[in-house]
């Protein structure tokens, strides 16, 4: 028995050594920044197109954590990211005002679209007035899937309902269904229950499970969706990689980054329109 016990102890020690070993050592020697961004930029494939160009030029790796805008801002607030890249201008301005971020810049825009079942039970397809379409959907009590996750898209949707003068409190749980999920899962849900849903165009164009869904309303200027980038305040969080974070922000908003954004297309269609103003203007 003592021998087996000694063997067993040795095995344990060996296991401990294996743990301490380099099994899961990350590539820590390469410089990197952490960017808190939105599911729409990640899932539309834009980052896959954009980031390798930046890394090739600067040697800085960009690690993207893709969340809803609300959650991404929360990461920045807690100092868990170096750069925040989101799309909810009023929330971003509040973030700056509270001292959580600095140096916000417009980067690009795309637009939201109203997606719905091809059968179009509320008969809203083909219109350009999204607010009128929402009123018709509410009157028809046609199923509508909401992100319900405090994301930029969710907030844009809530603004549109408000403009349409619809009180959602009564509709909740009936035809208005909050999924509390990202854009893709919300589209999956809408496809499953033949519901209407507000989506950003990028995620929609890249979405493979479109099923019986189609765009029903687009082109309304109220569907404009501005993206902004900012640095997490280094005065508040001293570990923020300021120089590398600024390098990323500068690159995104300068000619090279802007051209890279404009050149990203899916099926020949551009997903984002670069609109950073020239620096200093």
């Amino acid at each position: 028995m003592p021998l087996t016990r000694r063997l067993f102890t040795a095995a344990l020690a060996l296991a401990a050594a294996a743990v301490a070993g380099p099994t899961v050592a990350a590539a820590a020697d390469k410089p990197f920044i952490t960017v808190a961004s939105t599911t729409s930029t990640e899932q539309s494939g834009l980052f896959g197109h954009l980031l390798p160009k930046f890394t090739e030029k600067t040697g800085i790796e960009v690690r993207v954590v893709a969340l809803g805008t609300g959650q991404a801002l929360k990461l920045g607030e807690r100092g868990d990211a170096d750069v925040v890249f989101v799309h909810d201008k009023s929330a971003e301005e509040a973030f700056l005002k509270a001292g959580f971020g600095v140096d916000r810049r417009d980067v690009m825009y795309n637009d939201f679209i109203l997606v719905g079942p091809k059968a179009d039970p509320a008969k809203v397809a083909g219109g350009r007035d999204v607010v009128a379409a929402l009123r018709v959907i509410a009157t028809a009590k046609a199923p509508f899937v909401s992100r319900g996750d405090d994301s930029g898209t969710h907030k844009a949707e809530l603004r549109l309902w408000k403009e349409a003068g619809i009180d959602l409190a009564a509709a909740r749980g009936a035809w208005y269904r909050e999924t509390g999920s990202g854009m893709g899962p919300a589209l999956n849900t809408a496809a499953g229950m033949d519901a209407y849903v507000l989506s950003d165009r990028g995620t929609w164009l890249n979405f493979k499970n479109q099923g019986r869904l189609a765009i029903v309303v687009e082109g309304d200027e109220r569907l404009f969706n501005q993206y902004g980038v900012m640095l997490v305040n280094p005065a508040r969080h001293p570990h923020v990689k300021e120089a590398q974070g600024r390098a990323f922000i500068d690159w995104l908003t300068a000619q090279e980054g802007q051209e890279a954004i404009a050149s990203y297309k899916v099926g020949g269609e551009p997903l984002f329109f670069a609109n950073a103003r020239k620096q200093g203007s």
Binding site: T39, Q43, G184, P185, L187, N188, N206, K208, N209, Q210
Partner: peptide, 9 residues
């Protein structure tokens, strides 16, 4: 989870 989100079931 990500591919499910993208609808690539």
């Amino acid at each position: 989870a990500l591919e499910t989100s993208k609808g690539d079931l």
